[in-house]
């Protein structure tokens, strides 16, 4: 009894310590961004100061610089627009493709799915030169449409591969039942398969959107004007001037960009994890 008691307490201590370690590890960058955003430069650069707290009065100077002297809001808008478009294009192409590969082509579906996934593994650093020719030929250079065109080539293969797994886990009998109950195959797909795979679809949405916000090479290569920048390129280009780093504003920009995505992840966390098809089939 006593030994069991010790063991439970021991297990709890390990459990809690692991949680604490990971929480600190994951929360620290956010803490650092917040504190750096509001610190005066003099406080930030004085080596003797305790870096984890405010040693002088907090300031809004860095935010003023970010919003007043750069086109940060415009970049955020560009990124949101490109993100939304890429998500829509990805879903429109990847969802039907993944369903077809998962259901209709039998064994070849699997091979083709892996083949498509492999194209995702070709790094952008290899592709940006030929793709910049394509973008130039289409006359899309220096516009956000260049990245709207190029990003789906990265998001679609991965999304197809991911969704294939989701669709395969949905028992075929569910669609059969829906078809017997009065739907067409397309109706069964829209009203049965899509709602059940909502976790997979949300994963695709978040994956595509985050890819757009963090992609660097294509955005840097294809777009030069300040007003058309994506947030991931605009921040380092315009807040690092020569050898001067505007740390406070850089951290503020990172914070403002990353918090919404972090919140989004948190909001749908259950959806990602939930065993959504449990109970459908014994």
């Amino acid at each position: 009894m006593q030994r069991g008691g010790f063991r439970t307490i021991g297990a709890r201590i390990v459990h809690v310590s692991v949680l604490v370690v990971f929480t600190i590890l994951l929360a620290f960058p956010f803490y650092w961004m917040v504190i750096a955003t509001f610190k005066q430069n003099i406080d930030l650069y004085t080596v003797e100061n305790n870096p984890f707290t405010f040693n002088a009065k907090p300031t809004l100077d860095h935010l003023r610089l970010l919003f007043g002297e750069t086109q940060f809001v415009r970049w955020l808008g560009n990124t949101a627009l490109v993100g939304a478009l890429v998500v829509v294009i990805t879903l429109l192409l990847a969802v039907p493709a993944a369903y077809a590969l998962a259901r209709l082509t039998g064994r070849w579906g699997q091979h083709l799915g892996i083949g498509i996934f492999l194209t995702y593994l070709i790094p952008p650093t290899l592709l940006f030169i030929p793709l910049s020719r394509v973008v130039a030929l289409l006359g899309l250079q220096d516009t956000i449409w260049s990245v709207v065109l190029v990003y789906p080539s990265m998001t679609i293969p991965f999304s197809i591969w991911l969704l294939m797994g989701f669709f395969k886990s949905i028992p075929k009998e569910l669609e059969d039942a829906a078809m017997v109950d009065g739907l067409t195959r397309f109706g069964a797909f829209i009203r049965m398969v899509v709602p059940i795979s909502v976790s997979g679809i949300l994963t695709v949405v978040i994956f595509s959107f985050t890819l757009v916000t963090q992609e660097f090479v294509y955005a840097l290569t294809f777009i030069s004007p300040e007003s058309n920048q994506m947030v991931g390129v605009g921040i380092p280009i315009f807040l690092v001037r020569g050898d001067v780093y505007f740390w406070g504003s850089l951290m503020a920009a990172c914070l403002i960009t990353s918090v919404p995505i972090a919140l989004l992840y948190n909001l749908f966390l259950d959806r990602f994890i939930a065993g959504f098809t449990v109970g459908a089939v014994k």
Partner: peptide
């Protein structure tokens, strides 16, 4: 005719209840 036009109802081995 498609399944829905045949005026049949089917119970599957796994029951195929719609989980959502």
């Amino acid at each position: 005719l498609t399944p829905r036009e045949r005026r049949i109802a089917m119970v599957f081995q796994s029951y195929a209840l719609y989980p959502h």
